[in-house]
Design a protein around this nucleic acid. Structure first.
Lengths: 202, 202
DNA sequence: ATAAATACTGTATAAAAATACAGTTACTGG
DNA sequence: CCAGTAACTGTATTTTTATACAGTATTTAT
């Protein structure tokens, strides 16, 4: 989207605040008043510019016919990823089960949700079918629960790195740790698990 | 709130839909058009009535100055309950840690959120500090995870009822089942656990 | 250097919108 | 029975609001 000047930013932010506070987009006269313009045309031409740059649309002939595009474009919630086929990128649309209406404040930093398959993290309280909030990251501290990809396959494990060796530790005695030599095998860190969601009864 | 007639309901619902769809409250003329009134005053007097009954407010002299009261009143999210003192009602304001911005669709039917204390349900994937979504209910099926209150104390366990006996089953071998004889002891079912939320890293 | 874009002032005007006043018809509770 | 409310029609009149046209001073890209 075409960048805005400082003044245009100010005006756009004020319009957003106005809509939030008043429940109504402002009129040209209100904009004029707020910014102490001596002409309504100052407001008019700013609106035209913001519309031209794609930040809002003006519905002609309608009182207060200002519509913010960000409202329309901004998708609510986070995408929920189901089964990830080996080798496919996680955020490809084909894997999306849909979107869950998660408020951004609930899991700050989360980029997507991933449905857990299997019981390898049972003792960390992560059960089959649970939904994880994942923050994309290519670095992790030892002990963090991560989403990683080995040979194309996506897995959730606890991270431990020692030199060139990475250990992906399950939390269930029925499973064995996965040991990866970074010099020999391909391992990609997809993200950090920063929250968990279990939907439906238990 | 004073009840609405059928017609007034229709009009209020249409206004709500209009705001959601257009991002703008309607004008009298738009209302007139939508309901095929032959006079703008039909719209005007309906608005006055809805305002008098408290469903919306009219900002005089402003184009599209209709404001729904439900928007203002409706609190977002669900209350998060922390430590519940013995005997205190769960939803008393004093226990509230705050509110979490949970969309109603995420945990349909949830009435509040309860922070878990202790590890007695560890093997059901419910850990200390987890947040449970709870639906208020005074009945449960055997096997459901419930929030119950014995002698004023709130606890989360799996429910099993056989005649006059209720067994509150932990999911951790370090804890023992709680057996309650309904004829002798006071037990109150506070609600059913219908979801779980773990915030922050693992 | 210079044409274009930004950021305005100043004046006007037509269309959109709110709103007042005067009625009619039907139903509803005391 | 009859006053009050609901649900309108019909007309009129301000205000609000959008928006056109004609300028000016600065900054920015080429």
């Amino acid at each position: 989207m075409e960048p805005l000047t400082h003044r245009q930013q100010q005006i756009l932010v004020w319009i957003q605040a106005q809509i939030a506070k008043q429940g109504l987009p402002p009129t040209r006269a209100e904009l004029q008043e707020a910014f102490r313009f001596r002409s309504p045309n100052a407001a008019e031409s700013h609106l035209r510019t913001l519309a031209r740059k794609g930040y809002l649309t003006l519905q002609e002939g309608r009182a207060r016919g200002i519509r913010l595009v960000s409202e329309l474009v901004e998708e609510i919630g986070l995408p929920l990823i189901g089964r990830v086929p080996a080798g496919a990128p996680i955020l490809a649309e084909s894997q999306q089960e849909g979107r869950l209406p998660i408020d951004a404040q609930l899991f700050p930093g989360a980029d997507y949700l991933l449905r857990v398959q299997g019981m390898s993290m049972r003792d960390a309280g992560i059960l089959d079918g649970d939904v994880l909030a994942v923050q994309q990251s290519s670095e992790a501290h030892n002990g963090q629960v991560v989403v990683a990809r080995i040979d194309g396959e996506v897995t959730v494990k606890r991270w431990r790195k020692e030199g060139h060796q990475v250990f992906l530790m399950p939390e269930n005695p029925d499973f064995s740790p996965i040991e990866v030599d970074l010099r020999k095998q391909d391992l990609r860190l997809e993200g950090l698990v920063i929250g968990l969601l279990r939907l439906g009864g238990l």
